[in-house]
Each structure stands twice: as structure tokens, then as C-alpha cells.
Design a protein around this nucleic acid. Structure first.
Lengths: 183, 183
DNA sequence: CCCGTGTGAGACAAAAGCGTCTCACGTGGT
DNA sequence: ACCACGTGAGACGCTTTTGTCTCACACGGG
């Protein structure tokens, strides 16, 4: 009976990442609920996006925790992180393109926390000699987001099997980030 | 006096790629022109997106031509292509997330032409033994788009210097795509 | 069984955005 | 100097979207 808030947000993210101009009515129908009910849970479009942001940050942070990125070799930590990030992929794919969140003063500090942890991971890899040092941690961080988004999009589109998600991303990202013996 | 159509489209892409819900008025102001003038050149939002699509396809195809991707080693061809793609980066970044273009029957065949040429390049690299074969050409193609977009965003945001654009993307993409001796 | 809670559907006004028009202005060419 | 053209600003009616409200209904617990 009662609406599952998280499930609604997930459906909203899936739709909005494909059609950012979708109306509240379309979001509601995509979530399988009425527009009135959607409005009962989220005051408006802005509140909806904020809720998506919050959920995304929580899931991404949970992924960082679950992957125990501080432990073991950095490349394996990245591999675990990519796998753990898959549930949050569509959320990330949408929110990364939602610049409204980053302009203005009320910017959610969760993003900088995420960035900091991610950057720290890449920096650790560089200091341990696992990652090449000619690619800045900030760029690796950015590329991580981008590849997660591309992966989510490719999976949703059927171009990549969902099972290959982690492998494709991790292999591409690590292959580029890992210092290779030649060169 | 007369408005530079291409420049308007470029400004529109830069804005829309970070705020897909931007109004025509915002687009006009971002381009430094009045809303009426924007309307004189593009009948509506849809026409604007179509024009962006057309320009993007033209520029991407020009980049493919300019990079002469059929010549020389595949990895060097990719490197040339990344460099040649920089002017079209923000356009690509926006349009890749605009799925409205891909659903429906009036889909521009330019995209499949681009995809085909890009896929052929990666496939050639695999057959020549330059690229690893466990990452599908389709995924490499997708990742290429994604990294171009991430790079454009990182540059626009000041996280990466514009001069490093090509290097960062090509190194990350190729490092992952190139078969390394270990493993 | 019955009542309370949460829901879907629809009506409704307000707001936002769009597309068109007019008009004054400034620039560039004649 | 003059004229023509393209522009910016703003007004206007229209459509779409939004946010709120009401009401009937289904479910679930007491």
C-alpha cells in the first residue's frame, strides 16, 4: 500500500537520466504512482532532485564503505569500488549532469566528501606506485564518474550486459590508471 | 552585428550540457543574445536541439576525417582523434545525454555512421593486436564518448587545463585499451 | 466487521514557459 | 547623410506544467 520512497527515487533517476525534461506526471507514471502521491512525498521538482541527490550521496558513500577503499592495493580497491557502485550508477549518471546542484550556496557538502575520498584513493595508488602520476587524481576522479555514467547508459541501452558492467569499467579505468611496465 | 549561428549553438551546448532544463531565455542570455533573436534563428527548442545535433555530427565527422583514423597504428589514430574532437566536446557531452534523439523514427543516421567509423577503428586496433580484445568495440566507443564528455566538463569547470584535455583522455583511454604485456 | 490511513483520479487556479508580434535603436552599407 | 537590416527589449495570448484540493476507493489493523 504505502509507497516505497527509495523505489520511487530509483524510477525517477532511471527516467530523468534519459529525459531530463520529463514532467512530474511522467515521473509519477514511470514510478507507477499517481501525480498526487508523488507530490505528497516530494513537494516539487526541486525537492525531488534534492532527494535524489541525498540518496545518491548515501549510496555512493555506502559503496565507498563497502569497498573498504583504504585497504589493500589501490587497484583492487578501485575494482571493489566499481562493483559496489553499480546500484548507484543511474543516480550518478543523472546527477552528474545536473549542474543546478553545484551552483549556488546551498551546495551539498556530501559531494566534496565523496570527491575527497575518491581523490585520496587515487593519490594513495600513486604514492604506492600502483597508479601513474601523470594523470591527476582529480581527473581520474572525474573519469571515474564519467565511466560509471557511460556504463550505466550502455547497460540500460543493451549495448553492454549488466554482468559486464564492473569488468568493463574497472578494466578500462585501471588499465589507464595503472602504471604499465613499458613506457 | 549579425549573430554567429555556430557560436550561439556552442554556447547553447555548453549551457544545456550542464542544465538540460534551461529555458530558451537562459539559452539566449548564455549566448549573449535576446530571446527574440534566438527565436529568429531557431523556431523552437526542438529545432535548436536538431541544429545542435546536426552541428555535432558535422564536427565529429570532420574530426574523424581530420584525424585520418584509417591511417597508421590504431592507438596513434585514437590520439589524433581525441585531439581533433576537442572543439566538438561540449556538443557531444550534451547530445549523448539527450535520448530524445534516439527514440522515435526520425533518428538521424549520422550517429550510426559515427558509431560505425569509431567501432571500426577500435576493431582494427584489436585485429592489429594493439588493443585488448576483452573490451568490446561498442564499449570502447561508449567510453570514448563518456571520457570526451567528462573531459569537456572538467575543463569547463577548471579542474583540468584545456591544454591537458587531449593528453588526459587519450592516455586514460589508450592505457586501458592497449594490451599491456603483463596480464 | 468497521474505521483509519494512504492512494488514484480528476478538477482547479496559479505560474512558468513558449511563440509571436511590435517598436525603438544602433550599426553598416549605399 | 540616409536607409535598410538585424537586433534587444518588452508585451501579449496561449499552452503546458505545477501545486493544491476534493472525493471515492482499496487495503489492513483493531
Amino acid at each position: 500500500m504505502s509507497v516505497d520512497r527509495t523505489q520511487v527515487l530509483r524510477a525517477a533517476a532511471a527516467l530523468l537520466s534519459r529525459k531530463a525534461t520529463a514532467t512530474m506526471d511522467e515521473v509519477a507514471r514511470a514510478a507507477g504512482i499517481g501525480r498526487a502521491t508523488l507530490h505528497r512525498h516530494f513537494a516539487g521538482r526541486d525537492a525531488l532532485v534534492r532527494a535524489l541527490e541525498q540518496l545518491c550521496i548515501e549510496e555512493a558513500e555506502a559503496a565507498l564503505d563497502a569497498a573498504r577503499i583504504e585497504e589493500g592495493p589501490a587497484d583492487e580497491a578501485v575494482r571493489r569500488l566499481v562493483t559496489a557502485s553499480q546500484p548507484a550508477a543511474s543516480l550518478l549518471a543523472f546527477l552528474v549532469t545536473e549542474n543546478q546542484l553545484f551552483e549556488g550556496d546551498g551546495q551539498n557538502e556530501g559531494w566534496s566528501r565523496l570527491d575527497a575520498r575518491l581523490v585520496a584513493l587515487f593519490r594513495r595508488g600513486q604514492e604506492e606506485g600502483t597508479f601513474r602520476i601523470d594523470l591527476s587524481p582529480a581527473w581520474l576522479c572525474e573519469a571515474f564518474y564519467g565511466l560509471i555514467g557511460s556504463g550505466a547508459w550502455a547497460v540500460a541501452d543493451g549495448r553492454v550486459a549488466a554482468n559486464d558492467f564492473s569488468y568493463m569499467i574497472a578494466e578500462l579505468l585501471l588499465g589507464g590508471a595503472r602504471r604499465s611496465v613499458e613506457k
